[in-house]
């Protein structure tokens, strides 16, 4: 990058000769293979993680809605059934003598 204007022979970059050494180091650092490879890796990681996040989100959405449809009503109904059984047992014990229903089971 720094070599290009010199080869072109244009006087424009000459004016900035004072901070040249400073920018040169910066430019050298930024253009060094480690930094560029790191940048590439960071870019890739961001891309993959974004994709991963999106697909996990979608999977979670599908799993969640399926759960809501298939399992939640089942849990509610099982709970109701159990409550009902308990109530019945309670009433049978309160009434005392004729617990024929549960006794038969």
């Amino acid at each position: 990058m720094a070599a290009q204007p010199r080869r072109g022979g244009v006087s424009l970059p000459e004016r900035r000769s004072a901070p040249k050494s400073d920018s040169n180091i910066l430019a050298r650092i930024t253009s060094s293979p480690i930094v560029s490879r790191g940048k590439q890796a960071a870019c890739d990681a961001a891309f993959v993680s974004k994709k991963l996040l999106r697909s996990t989100g979608k999977a979670a959405w599908i799993a969640g809605t399926t759960f809501l449809i298939l399992v939640v009503p089942l849990i509610i109904e099982m709970d109701r059934e159990q409550q009902f059984n308990e109530l019945e047992l309670q009433q049978a014990s309160l009434l005392g003598a004729p617990p024929t229903g549960p006794a038969l089971k």
């Binding site: 298939l70 009503p73 109904e77 099982m78 059934e81």
Partner: peptide, 25 residues
């Protein structure tokens, strides 16, 4: 799929290989 016949309700649910989920209460 499953089929629950309880005293107060009947609940049926199924899932198939096309990803279609259904429930009927």
């Amino acid at each position: 799929g499953y089929d629950y016949i309880l005293r107060q309700c009947r609940l049926r649910g199924k899932i198939d290989s096309n990803g279609c989920t259904a429930a009927y209460l």
